[in-house]
Nucleic acid binder design. Structure first.
Lengths: 245, 245
DNA sequence: TCCGCTGTGCGTACAGTGTTCGCATCGAAG
DNA sequence: CTTCGATGCGAACACTGTACGCACAGCGGA
């Protein structure tokens, strides 16, 4: 049933078969494990990832994974760092620092929404930000903000990216709940609307201020984009005031 | 071993004994369960909470809890809402909206740091923000921002509190890792310093911009306070620009 | 050719987890 | 006294992460 790399005590040990194995079933390796884990996390969510399922996806036993990864937590940190490589940060020194930061922030957000488990792990993670890709992400940010002329670049970065992380976390949680419902975001919003309105009955200011009008159920994704952009502009405006003129 | 409300088929059923039971061992109730769950979460962290342990803490079997709570996830949402009541929001209409928002933001942060599992659950939560306490928290915020004169109060709230949530999540994750180490924050920082410096070797801007100088290991808590306050000022400055003058 | 050695896979097992089910018990209502 | 709905709970199910020890493959040296 469970078969390892060798099909069955290969009768004719030739270079061909061995080559084929190498590419066809690339053995168990840290990279392959992390890659497959990310695929599972993206497809089925964080609570669906178990070492046993991951193992059988790789045609391996669950405990074989532990030869390449110390623990499941470590695997999660590796996954975080792998995904951190997807975040794009424009080169430092460009003419328009706001555009560059906006690009980096947006790239973080889309990455976090593409991998909705990212923020969850970041919220638990021991020291996920010590991984090479996350470090290089931080380094490029530092370069960007330093070149922009901020006297305390790390404080500026923390301000912007705390906002970005907070918003992305909230959005990712929302999208996960939507996904679990099996509906489209619009349908889910429409179905949730009465409950939300009932829950906010008696809260005058919430009802007046809230965006829970049915007109906006039309394109919730655009609404989220706008909300993110708005808050980001707010933070960047606040930061601009601190730039030595 | 495990004993229920009745000590042992009480021989003399009197009002006294019954009264005593009522107050002494307040039976299993949703409130008691949630309260004890929060105590466990605060004391031992989110991964230490299991239905069995919680049950035995309440002198009850694990499965008895399910009479009062549908599922563990639901219990977590109840815990979140319970804790949301601790967040203080000043009354709307005061003369200094910045001070009021600063107070609310700070109260959210200290609550999140007092219950480091809060942000974790918020990041997973289906619709935790529909609980009564969280709703009333949102309502008071809406009142505050509306009275301050913001044309789009919900956007302003989202901007500020995305920042607050992001920063609090990061801090809570950090504090959890520190707590797991069993050391004080200062000691942990000191011990981590060489590793961090080695990890950032070769990253020029990180080394220059980062706060990883040993001088600051002295009072890390104050450093965090300052960082939070700084970012909050940034966001509030950006928001102030949008206030109709 | 054989011998060990090292690295890798995995079957088994352990101590837990959330949750379901059916039975026992109990206080109050009729 | 009987009946009934609410409550507690022991046993069980299907999982989980992971430690341990055995099996075997490939390899460098004798």
């Amino acid at each position: 049933m469970s078969r390892s790399r060798t099909t069955d005590k290969s009768p004719i040990p030739s270079v061909w078969t061995r080559e084929q194995r190498r590419t066809d079933q690339p053995a168990l390796s840290r990279e392959a494990i992390v890659r497959e884990a990310i695929a599972m996390l993206d497809a089925e969510g964080i609570e669906a990832l178990s070492m046993r399922k991951l193992g059988s996806r790789l045609n391996a036993g669950a405990t074989s994974l532990y030869r390449h990864v110390a623990t499941k937590d470590e695997l999660m940190e590796l996954a975080v760092d792998e995904v951190a490589a997807e975040i794009h940060v424009p080169p430092a020194g460009g003419p328009d620092w706001r555009a560059a930061v906006t690009e980096a922030a947006g790239s973080f957000r889309t990455t976090a929404l593409r991998h909705p488990w990212l923020t969850l792990v970041l919220g638990q993670a021991g020291l996920a930000y010590l991984g090479p890709n996350y470090m290089s992400f931080s380094e490029r940010l530092a370069a960007l903000f330093t070149a922009a002329g901020f006297p305390e670049p790390s404080r500026a970065i923390d301000a912007v990216f705390s906002y970005v992380i907070g918003m992305s976390t909230t959005e990712a949680a929302w999208l996960t709940t939507v996904a679990r419902s099996g509906e489209t975001e619009s349908d889910f919003v429409a179905r949730l609307l009465p409950a939300a309105q009932q829950a906010s009955a008696g809260y005058d200011h919430l009802a007046a201020a809230g965006p829970e009008t049915s007109a906006q159920a039309a394109d919730p994704a655009k609404l989220r984009d706008d909300k993110f952009a708005y808050g980001l502009e707010v933070v960047l405006d606040g930061l601009a005031l601190r730039l030595p003129k």
